[in-house]
Simulated scan of single mutants.
Amino acid sequence: MCRHNRPCPTAHAADRDVAAIVARHDDQGWALLCNGVVRFDDTGEVLPDGRIVAPHRPVPAGVSA
């Protein structure tokens, strides 16, 4: 999907969240990335194959999970 000079990470790469945003709906809390991933404000994701990735916010230093 990506046509950038330096291609965005694929939807299955560990760093898929850094792909370029191609559509954004801040009022609804989501963005479509160049690699086909839908990223939500809570850090959850929907991959192009329909798989769901649960929210995965980092835990701040000094806070036990």
Rank of each mutant, 00 (worst) to 15 (best):
D42A: 12
P9Y: 11
H25D: 12
H4R: 14
F40Q: 13
V53R: 15
L47V: 03
H12R: 09
R51G: 05
E45S: 12
H25R: 01
G44S: 15
I52L: 03
E45D: 13
R57E: 00
D41F: 11
V22T: 14
V63T: 15
Q28L: 02
I52T: 08
V46R: 13
H25S: 02
H12K: 03
I21W: 01
T43W: 06
C2L: 04
A23T: 07
L33K: 14
A13P: 10
D26Q: 03
V18S: 15
N5M: 09
A20S: 14
R51N: 06
G62R: 09
L33Y: 03
R16W: 01
F40L: 15
G62Q: 06
D17N: 13
R24E: 14
D17R: 00
Q28N: 02
H56Y: 00
A19P: 11
A61D: 10
A14P: 07
A23W: 10
L33G: 03
V53T: 13
R6P: 05
A19Q: 13
V53A: 14
P7R: 05
V18R: 13
Q28R: 11
L47C: 08
A14I: 09
F40E: 00
G29L: 06
V53S: 13
P58C: 10
G50L: 09
A13T: 01
V63H: 06
W30M: 05
T10W: 02
C8W: 12
V63G: 09
G62W: 07
A31I: 02
G29R: 05
W30K: 08
R24L: 11
G62N: 02
V18N: 15
I52M: 07
H25Q: 04
P9D: 12
P7V: 04
A19L: 01
H56G: 12
V59G: 00
V37S: 09
P48D: 11
R51V: 03
D26R: 01
P7Y: 10
V46T: 04
R16G: 00
P9S: 13
C2R: 03
T10H: 03
V59E: 10
E45R: 15
H25V: 04
R24I: 08
D41T: 14
P55C: 00
I21G: 00
R51E: 12
V22Y: 08
A61T: 09
T43A: 05
A20W: 07
A31T: 06
S64A: 06
R6M: 08
P60K: 10
A13E: 11
G29C: 05
A20H: 15
V46W: 03
D42N: 15
F40W: 02
A13M: 02
A11W: 14
A31C: 06
H56R: 15
D49S: 07
L47K: 14
H4I: 02
D49L: 09
D49E: 09
P60N: 11
G62P: 13
I21Q: 04
I52W: 01
R51P: 08
I21A: 02
A11V: 04
A54K: 03
V38W: 07
I52Y: 04
A13H: 08
A65T: 13
A19S: 11
A14S: 14
R6Y: 07
C8H: 10
A61S: 13
A23D: 08
A19G: 04
V59Q: 05
D27A: 10
P58M: 10
N35A: 06
A54M: 03
M1G: 08
D17Q: 05
I52R: 06
N35E: 06
C2V: 04
R57A: 12
D41N: 15
